[in-house]
Design a binder for these strands. Structure first.
Length: 482
RNA sequence: CGGGGUAUGGCACAGUUGGUAGUGCGCUUCGUUCGGGACGAAGAGGUCGCCAGUUCGAGUCUGGCUACCCCGACCA
């Protein structure tokens, strides 16, 4: 009898994560492959997730006095060439327009892989004095990076994100903002998407092309691979110098502004899908769920029951719950149960003649699949519980799969087996980092920054590099990356 | 960029030594059902990825092209 709970067609997460991942995205109608290589269509149900992220994050960004604006999709190639590391980092992934309006273009136009260069060219024109700083602008837009190997949401040739770009008179102000952005992202992941992760600093070789320092939020996926959830960069004065952008300081001397940039993309939706779902389909954390409660009137119920169901829907709407009533004809109750389970709606309410008579509803929580009779007043509490459970579950998974290792043998053994985060001393020499990656597939994810308030740098410890045995002062986090 | 695979109704696929284009799911209509993916009946839907060649005749054989997917190296 347990068989009746198996999805007829959906691939099993427990069999193969990556097959399940693609299958569930298509079947839950979050997205579809576009007829363009490496590109995807984000369908309404999937786009609602992105809108949910925007609704949560945009006010936080504005509260920090960052304004939204829009810059061109096309960037003259010569702008990108100005910052050496920057162009070297992005050149392999650039899509370039060379032909338009029926003729060869005199100036090649890069479809933006990120907007630092076009934005700073404008910042330069808009600022003359230190009094014109800080300048803080964010844009919600699309980005093109021609990836060789693509994957729905996690790595597509075009993706959506927000990119914030600020410039200050002092490095201190800029750095404090870099950390603010990182904290905002962390909060979004934990509170909205119910994803636990580790905030940290990237190593020299893993940092953003052109940055002085890159901060990141790394999450662990069910297969033990790590997902970089966002980045926040301290750009120092690199771009200002490359663009010859100066303002006059108090003494009339030229000052190169201190800059930062920070971004959060639709990749986050990939993490959300992968971390929370199960063999039955997606599980949407209630805070981000486009539909928090799906109400299913049992087909064949009396007209009185239908009325009762609609009254329950209205009652839920009134208290701010995102609720939908599935009264579509021609689908059986079981069919609808399965349909909404695949889509990961946190709570299903079944309403038939019995419920209408008793004046209650039958509720099923998507995470535990437990069925119980409740009154409408209990739904908000149930949603909160599901949200907390999902975060707790992911946190526990992450901590259970974070290994502190002392020897390279142990390191290799873990990578050959269950993988996960590996915390190990590293001498901070790039050649060790490269060899570790070549030998184990684990790349350096970050130097974790779960710091006591006020501390900017993790305190030093005494250790020896897990690879070469030379002295090391910090434990870095390693994992195979997505 | 290397390796592999695929291309036939909306989707998943079959199609034998070359001889009238098939199956399942889905879709439409009607009826019976309806508390974990209901059932029956009747329907609609295809220039077989593109271009050339061989042949009386090509989904099938040959050559070329294109596109997409999967696996590795690079990345949010």
């Amino acid at each position: 009898m347990q068989k009746q709970f198996e999805k007829k067609e959906l691939k099993k997460k427990s069999d193969n994560l990556s097959d399940w991942y693609t299958d569930v995205i298509l079947k839950a109608q979050l997205a579809d492959y576009a007829p363009i290589k490496g590109c995807m269509v984000i369908r309404p149900y999937g786009f609602a997730l992105w809108e949910g992220i925007q609704h949560y994050m945009d006010p936080l960004i504005k509260a920090h006095k960052v304004e939204n604006a829009y810059f061109p999709l096309f960037i003259p190639e010569k702008f990108l060439n100005l910052e050496k590391e920057h162009v070297e980092g992005f050149a392999p992934h650039m899509a370039v327009v060379t032909f338009a309006g029926g003729e060869e273009l005199k100036e090649r136009l890069v479809v933006r892989p990120t907007s630092e260069t076009i934005m700073y060219e404008m910042y330069k024109r808009w600022t003359q004095s230190y009094r014109d700083l800080p300048i803080r602008i964010n844009q919600w837009n699309n980005i093109v990076r021609w990836e060789k190997r693509t994957y729905l949401f996690l790595r597509t040739s075009e993706f959506l994100w927000q990119e914030g770009h600020c410039a200050h008179n002092t490095h201190k102000e800029s750095v404090s903002e870099v950390r603010w952005a990182l904290d905002m992202y962390k909060e979004t992941y934990q509170n909205l998407l119910a994803l636990y992760g580790v905030a940290g600093v990237k190593s020299e070789s893993e940092k953003f092309a052109g940055a002085k320092k890159t901060y990141t939020f790394e999450m662990l996926m069910p297969d033990g691979k790590a997902l970089q959830g966002c980045t926040s960069h301290d750009l120092g004065q690199n771009f200002a110098k490359a663009f010859h952008w100066t303002v006059q300081d108090e003494k009339g001397q030229p000052l190169y502004p201190w800059q930062n940039s920070w971004g959060f993309s639709t990749r986050s939706i990939g993490g959300l899908i992968m971390a929370h779902g199960d063999d039955q389909g997606l599980i949407m954390p209630p805070n981000i769920a486009p539909i928090q409660v799906i109400l299913i009137p049992i087909p064949g119920s009396s007209p009185k029951t239908i009325k009762y169901a609609i009254a329950q829907r209205e009652a839920l709407k009134k208290i701010g719950i995102r609720v939908k009533c599935d009264d579509k004809d021609g689908e059986s109750a079981g069919f609808k149960f399965n349909k909404w389970e695949v889509r990961g709606v946190p709570i299903r309410l079944e309403i038939g003649d019995k419920e209408a008579e008793e004046g209650i509803v039958t509720a099923v929580a998507r995470d535990t699949m437990q069925k119980k009779k409740v009154s409408i007043d209990e739904i908000s509490g149930m949603l909160e519980t599901i949200q907390q459970n999902l975060l707790e579950t992911h946190k526990k998974f992450t901590l259970d799969h974070t290994h502190t290792v002392e020897s390279y043998d142990h390191f290799k053994k873990i990578m050959a087996g269950e993988r996960g985060f590996i915390s190990a001393f590293w001498c901070e020499d790039a050649s060790c980092e490269t060899k570790i990656k070549a030998e184990t597939k684990a790349s350096n994810r970050c130097l974790p920054l779960d710091l006591p308030a006020g501390r900017q740098v993790p305190k030093e410890e005494k250790g020896t590099c897990v690879h070469c045995g030379k002295p090391a002062t910090h434990r870095w986090l390693f994992a195979q990356a997505y």
